[in-house]
Design a protein around this nucleic acid. Structure first.
Lengths: 109, 109
DNA sequence: ATTATTCATCGTAATATTGCGATATATAAA
DNA sequence: TTTATATATCGCAATATTACGATGAATAAT
């Protein structure tokens, strides 16, 4: 009990919900927005920027990396993160295929 | 400890992450997709359709309703759910404003 | 070689989510 | 009125998430 029954659902649906879930936390949205805004790579000014502990930021970065939304590159003693522009395009397409669907007006009220 | 520090973030960011989170579960994606496909309203054939317990489905419906994604209407002894087409449009715009942002290619690797 | 910096990971506490059976409520049907 | 049907909610157990301090690993600076 307590565990999501992913095996009840298609890969398609599980993948989509994983992407949504990865963005389902304000810190992770803020991180992604920061990476988009700063174009150039960002390491952990995020810690100062967001006001969360370093361990917490690192955890959120991992979640975004696992979802394929960002990627990181070692750069000296720090690590340079940026949007994974390849997956970003896929994600955009994936989201749009779902959210862009036509919805009937007032179909129940 | 353990609670999301929403007050660290803007309303904009919190709202967006709430929307994403509402769709961050396969059952809820499946429910929304079902509501889109069936155009006409759906009550709890979802229980048979998804194979989850009635209480669980009801809980997921509540999460989607709280997020403004669906709405329900009493219809005899059952309740008729459908996409809230007004908020759906807002949501689409909101998502697109975020996901549709231009991302620099290979900005860190 | 030692020290400082940057980041990941571990361990742990607090809280949230997921799922279900049981029960409550409300309407329809008999 | 009694019974059946549909749904919401309560209470609980299992698991996941969020957050943080402490520690480890790797590189840069001294």
């Amino acid at each position: 009990m307590g565990t999501t029954k992913s095996y009840f659902f298609s890969n398609e649906i599980n993948h989509l919900s994983n992407l949504f879930r990865a963005l389902g936390h304000p810190a992770r949205i803020a991180i992604v927005q920061h990476l988009i805004d700063q174009k150039t790579c960002i390491c952990n000014d995020l810690v100062e920027e967001l006001g969360l502990a370093q361990a917490t930021i690192s955890q959120h970065l991992k979640a975004l990396k696992d979802a394929g939304i960002i990627k990181g590159n070692i750069e000296g003693k720090s690590i340079c993160y940026c949007i994974d522009e390849n997956n970003w395009a896929h994600m955009e397409a994936h989201f749009h295929a779902f959210i862009g669907q036509k919805v009937q007006a007032n179909s129940c009220c």
